[in-house]
Amino acid sequence: MRFEQLRYLEAALRTGSFRQAAKELDISQPTITSQVQRLEEDLGVLLVTRGAKGVKPTYAAERILPHVEAAVQAERMLREEASAISGLQLGEVRLGTVPAGSQTLLPPVVHKLLTDYPSLRFEVDEGPSKMVVRGVLSGKFDVGIVTRLPGIELVAAENALLHHIDLLPGRLVLTVPEDHRLASVDRFTPEDLEGEPLIFPADSSILKVAFEKLLEGIEARIVYSSPNAESVQSMVRAGVGISMANTLVDSTASGNGIALVPLNFDWAQAHTSVIVRKDEARSSAVQAFLKLLRESAAAGR
């Protein structure tokens, strides 16, 4: 049994396809197929079933998969730590982040790390907080940057399995056209939104969860939905409807046809936070990234 065989098995089961796994690992499909077969022979169990829709794990594979994933992670960290002995000359940070993280925290931090360690590599996916949380929990990401709201969990296992570090504070606000009746008020009640045309964020966005919380007991009139914050604000500016936004996102600004209305609720206190899995050893590259993130956030407050 060799580490590469475990990598091949993990990739095949994660992608559901020998072809996709081979493409991801930059090897030939016959190689990955034969190596998984040799692993099955070595372990004495059938690990995958093959069908028209790809490969699926057997019962044996489901039982050993956590150990396979741990071994693959351990090998990657072993290689990174070996290279780190000579001064963090090689490493990778797999990162999932919300747009607010890309706009505020990441540019100076990534620039600093790549200046000091030009051989480092960042593999980044950007999307809503729920996607990032699930990616960190599954091991797809080493680190996540999310938007957190008090008392709101996006995934049931979030608090039990993840460690959160709040970095930058912000708030949720309503965004309304400048000539709207709510544009000049300091306070409003959810009932003020009854019958108003509303623009909703993406299904997996924490803003959607917050919007639904605000509208509990109110008959919502949703006229438009988009995962893109800037597109949403363009629709508000055009008078299509009212939306919700996070002040930590660059596109959330008053003027040019848009007014911001404060949400005076405890749960509307947003934070950009970094998340990692609890009780897990981290590579030197990830540790350096986390340290610089905290320092950069503290300096920017």
Rank of each mutant, 00 (worst) to 15 (best):
L214I: 01
A281Y: 06
L88P: 00
K53G: 02
E40L: 05
T104A: 15
A298E: 14
L120G: 13
L162H: 06
A61H: 08
R7C: 10
A297E: 11
Q287Y: 08
S129Q: 03
V240M: 14
S86T: 15
T33V: 12
R301M: 01
A160I: 00
Q287A: 15
L105M: 14
V274L: 09
I222A: 13
S225I: 05
I258L: 01
P30F: 06
A298N: 07
L88T: 03
V68R: 10
H163K: 12
S28L: 00
E219Y: 05
E10W: 00
V185G: 14
G16C: 04
R171Y: 08
M244W: 02
R7K: 11
E212I: 09
H111N: 14
L105Q: 14
L167K: 12
S226C: 10
V185T: 15
I275T: 00
E191I: 06
E230T: 02
R76A: 14
L193T: 09
R171P: 01
I64T: 00
R187C: 10
G217R: 10
L263S: 03
G127H: 03
A70F: 06
G151L: 02
E212Q: 15
L174S: 04
F200E: 09
V176I: 13
Q29T: 13
A268F: 01
D125I: 04
L293W: 10
T252Y: 00
A100I: 03
K130F: 01
Y59E: 05
Q5R: 12
A299S: 14
V185S: 10
T58K: 02
V209P: 01
A70Y: 05
V155W: 04
Q35C: 11
A298Q: 09
R121K: 13
R76Y: 04
E194W: 03
P262D: 13
